[in-house]
Amino acid sequence: MHNFEFVKPSSVADAVSALAGEGAQALGGGQTLLPTMKQRLAAPEKLVSLSGLAEMTGVSSAGGVMTIGGATTHASVAADAGAYPGLAGLAAHIGDPAVRNRGTIGGSLANNDPSACYPAAALGSGATIVTNTREIAADDFFQGLFSTALDEGEIITAVKFPIPQASNYQKFVQPASRFALVGVFVARYADGVRVAVTGASEEGVHRWSAAEAALSANFSAAALDGLSVAADGMIADLHGTAAYRAHLVKVMTGRAVAAAS
């Protein structure tokens, strides 16, 4: 990979100022960024490490909202987010154990890989992405493949998840990468059900509004019976056709509803 300057700030404020320069990039757990840099597909001049910043680490719950620091690892969320079992279960199956010990929620959301798990949780929960400058609703945050509302140098310091009455994430894995070929996050709130889909669409993570409406009226897998997902706009690749992914969206949604707790 190209060489760069490694910077390890001791506070969010220091990190923000370190990121202000040209060619600087934030480093979360690096579980996606390092492989990308090895391929020389990313060549930051400066990497600003956010891992270990105490003010960005940890899981806490208050008033029905779970707040997770942006530098919290997947393993920590899996272990500490018991108050939100759908989210903890999702975190427990990202990557593999070693990846989960390094990868962070902030890094995953900022990257917005179209097959990543966390974007489905954030969108499916109607979460709020907290940065060093503002708060962004998940519905506004994800803007297509690898694209988000974040500005240059902006850091995800925390994510606030409203805790639902019931939730579940179903991932149908792509057999090689073990990312989601299709992943569906279902969360049932007092004011309705949210369904977010990852892995499937050429537009990245998105909500399935027809399912949300049907499930809000009747929270059971049977409520999906009359629905169908169009293959248009679905990803087609070596691992699945667009029609197959569209089919899986419905199957995985039904299973998530059935398993929601």
Partner: peptide, 9 residues
């Protein structure tokens, strides 16, 4: 903690 030494500086 188990980590991948090839994916950490």
């Amino acid at each position: 903690q188990a980590v991948k030494a090839c994916t950490m500086f």
